[in-house]
Design a protein around this nucleic acid. Sequence first.
DNA 1: CTCCCGATAT
DNA 2: ATATCAGGAG
Length: 219
Amino acid sequence: MTKKERFNKVFPILEQKFQVPITALNYETPYQLLIAVILSAQCTDVRVNIVTKELFKIVKGPKDLAEMDLKEIEKHIRSTGFYKNKAKNIQMCSRQLLEKYNGEVPNTMEELRGLAGVGRKTANVVLGDIWNIREGIVVDTHVKRLSNRIGFVKSDNPEIIEKELMKFIPKKHWFEYSHYLILHGRDKCIARKPKCEICEIKEYCKYYETNLKKNKEKS
DNA sequence: CTCCCGATAT
DNA sequence: ATATCAGGAG
């Protein structure tokens, strides 16, 4: 089975399962989404939402973080991990927005990448969720894990994975693909103990195939 | 490549 | 105890 054939089997199943993909992060404005995504690095979306629920009561726009004491920012976001870097980044990012973009969130990959704490993954999420722009495929830890397990790629490098995926996934599905894999990764294809037995796409998954063989050899 | 780093499931 | 969580910067 080629990668494209495998994709054509898997994608409709995930599409049926998750329907319209929506972000699990809570926010009211593009600026708040940007901050939430920066905070979500190596942290569960659930934890980010707990933090932003309080933070966004006092942070409505870039001015609020630009002027806030760094220690106070750290105190608010501490439980998301990497809190010193993240505090510095979201404050610097807010100041950059005020200086360069009149306080608005820019809508190009290049401009977003120039902001503190914003890498390719964060930029892709903001572009997709706010402006519905498909600049690329969001490759986070879930997309990386599932793409390897299913058999779409063999790599740990997010940029290589993104390039490989773009070869056989139609551009119109790029944004949905990431969301579906992230959702499915949280639901069934969990990192530590994947629920292969009840997985909807197991018959098209190399990881399940390998496990089946191992189990049959044992018995 | 290493470091950043707390919370949670196993 | 250890792996893992919507990664990015130096």
